[in-house]
Simulated assay, not measured.
Amino acid sequence: MEIGIIGLGAMGREMARNLAAAGHTVIAWNRSGGQVEGVRMVETPVQALQADLAITMLSDDTAIREVLLHPNLLLKARPGLVHVVASTISVGFARALVEIHDAAGVAYVSAPVLGRPDVAAKGELNILAAGAPGALEKAKPALEAIGKRIWDMGDAPPMANAAKIACNMMIAMAIEAMAEAVVLTDTNGVSRERFFELILGTLFGSRPYQSYSGNIVRGAYQPGFKASLGLKDLRFASDAAAQAGRALPMLAAVLGRMTEAVEVGMGDMDWSAMAALTIDPHVHDAAQRRPR
């Protein structure tokens, strides 16, 4: 299958590499250029839309609007194209994309992923996919090449985006839960290593707890998933809750904490860095004093 990739960031590069390694013909466009082994780079994004399948891995709603929608590139896509949007986008924008793709006669699958670049490199992403059954079936060989499991979220693309945003919201809540637990244990002399050995071996052994507890133990927050992107996703969750007419108090709390983390200068650090604001009162005070 010929597959076009639009967006070669940390995730897109690994996805493109795995697709090529699986034997697919892969062409790619990236705003900042670059090269990926086994992938042919093209000069314009519309060229990537001439493949059998196109996968968009741009950073957010705005980037997709700028690259694809404002130039009306979907109207120039190859007939029969299936367009897979693997980016984490807002539910409202996903609904708009349904109408835009219908008007352009392009099949649309939403397939955001769970996993960081190291997971993408191994081809072990969890893919949350939603769209018309025929479009999903056509996309399946490509999705199988980049992920270890495809989770069918339904036949309406925004279903996948709602699920992905909910997942990221819950991870942020887990990070804050661990940070608050450390406040209680640190101040009573329990080492972080000993506490997290208990937690991971009993109540909370899932991957988010395994990954981010290590960052909290070390007090080191090198980028895996940037706090600025985490803030974007929490804002998407807040918008979706508002559209549903519902108040989500835990979401409001972690959104506030992640906002503080970005404002105090942690935007390029891993999003688990927001734990430092809860654990270290000096970091928190500095964030509170920062002009808003």
Rank of each mutant, 00 (worst) to 15 (best):
A86G: 10
V254N: 04
N30P: 07
G80Q: 08
A237E: 03
I5T: 03
Q288L: 15
R31Q: 09
A132K: 13
A48S: 04
A261V: 08
F225V: 00
I216K: 03
T202E: 12
A252T: 13
A275D: 10
R257E: 12
T202G: 12
L49Q: 14
Q35E: 15
L69Y: 07
S238N: 13
Y212Q: 09
P157Q: 10
R235C: 04
V46D: 08
P249S: 13
F196M: 11
P79K: 00
A104C: 15
L200N: 07
I171P: 02
V190Q: 02
G80E: 05
I64L: 06
I55P: 08
Q47S: 12
E99P: 03
N161F: 07
V98E: 14
A177Q: 00
V39H: 04
A276Q: 00
K232W: 12
I175W: 05
R235K: 10
G7Y: 05
G256T: 02
M15E: 09
H284D: 13
V98L: 14
A261C: 11
G92E: 15
I216L: 02
A220L: 11
S213G: 12
S206R: 12
F195N: 12
A132N: 09
E180I: 03
A172N: 05
K138R: 06
V262N: 04
A121N: 00
T187K: 10
G265I: 05
E124F: 12
E66M: 05
N72H: 07
A179M: 07
L200P: 08
E197V: 02
E144C: 14
V46I: 03
Y108T: 06
L69D: 10
L248S: 14
G115L: 14
K76V: 03
Q47V: 11
A275M: 03
Q210L: 09
T187I: 01
M57L: 12
D155S: 05
Y212W: 06
H101I: 08
L125I: 10
D102E: 00
A132W: 06
D102N: 02
L198A: 15
M266K: 00
P117D: 09
K122S: 11
N126L: 14
G105C: 04
A104S: 14
P208M: 08
V119R: 02
A253L: 05
D118P: 04
A28M: 07
R246V: 14
F204I: 10
A177R: 03
A120W: 06
I199E: 00
A244N: 10
L49A: 12
Y108A: 04
R17M: 13
G214I: 01
K140A: 01
G134T: 12
Q210T: 09
G214P: 02
W29I: 06
E176D: 07
G92D: 15
G7F: 01
I171Y: 06
E124L: 11
S110N: 12
C167K: 00
R292P: 05
A172I: 01
I165E: 13
G7E: 09
